[in-house]
């Protein structure tokens, strides 16, 4: 080992959190995903442990979404069938499936909680990887849907959300009863992030059951705020702050694919080059940047972005001799 080095000494570390449960563990998953456990800033293997590699969740919806044309092209045959869609994502290398129950929204068909639960059950039956389930974003409806989903998938150890500062109780309570993990989202504010973790733990859910999204912004559209919050949160955790020690999830695909750089046609913006490569890289670069901030789970959409980000994470996980 080199002598010209400066290792920081940290007292804390990121919690280790497992998602999914196999038969022996009370679920039906054929594989589980464990993230966290880091006792260093990202990928600095020389000064602490980074035992587990960052993972990729691929996003699907329960109803056919109006996604970017390139994504529609990839998923054309499966977009109206969440089961087939999930399977396809697993083929593309998804470590987890992230399903958004958009169909529950009053404006999108207003599916009942039971119908939503059935979709989740069907996807669970179709794929062996763990699931992340999020509501439609309409608070009242989510409060009705998520507990029913949590009950129907009892024992599967889902990651379920979103829990937010002013609406976390029903989802956190349901997760507690049915043994799931909670996805807690705060709006780019380290104090709210911490506060939300405190509120959830006061309900009786241990901090080891929470994964945080400190709000994800896309490359070129505020990513630097997310990046700095990630770095500050990680430093706080390493200095022993238990209420910042949760692994991080970044919901990247949704943000990256609405960026202008992903949508502008080459014909209109000849000076930005090929739209296909540019759009895919917009998603992959957002992920690569946030990986340097300390993201543990990255939610992506395009299979080529998945490949690029996986490869980058693998390279970064190779422990070097220095």
């Amino acid at each position: 080992m080199a002598t010209n080095m400066l290792k920081e000494r940290y007292s804390g570390k990121i919690n280790t959190v497992t998602l999914g449960a196999t038969k022996e563990q009370g679920g039906t998953r054929t594989s589980t995903v464990t993230v966290g456990g880091d006792s260093t800033m990202p990928f600095l293997h020389f000064e602490g442990d980074m035992p587990l590699k960052p993972v990729i969740a691929m996003e699907i919806e329960d109803i056919k979404p109006d996604w970017h044309p390139f994504l529609k092209e990839v998923y054309a045959d499966v977009m109206d069938n969440p089961v087939a869609w999930a399977k396809k994502c697993v083929e593309f290398g998804a470590d987890l499936i992230y399903i958004k129950l958009n169909g529950a929204h009053p404006d999108n068909g207003n599916k009942s909680p039971e119908e939503c639960a059935k979709v989740v059950k069907d996807v669970l039956a179709a794929v062996g990887v763990p699931l992340i389930v999020v509501g439609c974003g309409e608070e009242e409806k989510d409060n009705a849907v998520l507990p029913v989903v949590a009950e129907a998938a009892a024992g599967e150890n889902l990651l379920i959300g979103l829990a937010k500062q002013d609406s976390y109780k029903s989802v956190a309570a349901a997760a507690m009863v049915h043994k799931h993990k909670v996805l807690a989202q705060s709006p780019l504010d380290i104090n709210i992030c911490k506060q939300l973790n405190i509120l959830i733990s006061e309900l009786g859910l241990a901090p080891e059951n929470v994964i945080i999204d400190p709000a994800t912004a896309a490359l070129g559209y505020g990513i630097e705020y997310t990046y700095s919050i990630l770095e500050r949160g990680r430093l706080g955790a390493l200095q022993g702050d238990k209420m910042l020690s949760q692994p991080v999830i970044c919901q990247i695909g949704h943000e990256a694919w609405r960026a202008k750089e992903a949508n502008a046609l080459e014909a209109d913006f000849p000076n930005w080059g090929d739209q296909g490569e540019r759009a895919i890289l917009w998603e992959a670069m957002t992920a690569a940047g946030l990986l340097q901030g300390g993201a543990h789970i990255m939610v992506l959409r395009h299979p080529e972005a998945v490949r690029l980000v996986k490869k980058n994470a693998e390279q970064l996980m190779i422990k070097p001799e220095i």
Binding site: L219, G220, Y227, E261, R278, L281, M285, A288, G289
Partner: peptide, 14 residues
């Protein structure tokens, strides 16, 4: 290629 470098330049800018 521009389409490869633009995302990298945006990251740098940020």
């Amino acid at each position: 290629e521009k389409h490869h470098l633009l995302p990298l330049m945006a990251w740098r800018m940020n």
